[in-house]
């Protein structure tokens, strides 16, 4: 028998519920395998406490405590319901809400912020300003005519006026 098969039979072996043939095989294996033997000893020691009837002592102020608890419950029945409501309804609701919020925030972070998503929209861009800018360019006299020409023309104008 392999070690794992031996381990499975610890409990019936401990109780003496194995057949003579199986018991013999177990004995033989345990005698030749120190690891299984050590494991069995630990197991047997632990499982033996299952039959250990542990009796707790009497509690001297048990009734007084019980009465106090009953009085408290009588005095504050409303707060008890509030407590139950808070524990069984409100708390799960808050946890669920925060969970959804966390998931929502996670999705938002994953797909980019709202500002970024506006920029990445493929809506047609208003290009009117280009034309307006082009018109404005021609309105700038300095760009069409150099400043020297203006000064010259102004001087010529003054001469004509003097004449």
């Amino acid at each position: 028998m392999k070690c794992n098969q031996i381990h499975k039979k610890f409990y019936p072996y401990h109780l003496g519920n194995l057949s003579a043939k199986e018991k013999e095989a177990m004995d033989k294996h345990l005698a030749n395998c120190p690891d299984c033997m050590a494991l069995y000893q630990k197991y047997a020691q632990t499982i033996s406490y299952l039959n250990d009837k542990e009796t707790l002592p009497e509690h001297p102020f048990y009734y007084t405590r019980l009465k106090q608890r009953m009085e408290n419950r009588k005095m504050a029945p409303k707060s008890r319901w509030e407590h139950v409501f808070a524990k069984k309804v409100l708390q799960p609701a808050i946890y669920l809400g925060s969970l959804f919020l966390a998931v929502y925030i996670g999705i938002l972070i994953g797909s980019g912020t709202g500002y970024q998503s506006n920029l990445s929209n493929n809506e047609p861009i208003d290009e009117d300003y280009i034309e307006a800018y082009a018109e404005y360019q021609y309105m700038n006299d300095f760009e069409i005519e150099s400043i020297e020409n203006v000064l010259v023309s102004e001087k010529e104008g003054e001469k004509e006026e003097n004449k």
């Binding site: 707790l56 002592p57 509690h59 009734y63 019980l66």
Partner: peptide
């Protein structure tokens, strides 16, 4: 009643 049975009940629960 409580004094008679409380030990038994505590033990079962424990």
């Amino acid at each position: 009643f409580v004094e008679k049975y409380h030990q038994m009940v505590i033990n079962v629960c424990n």
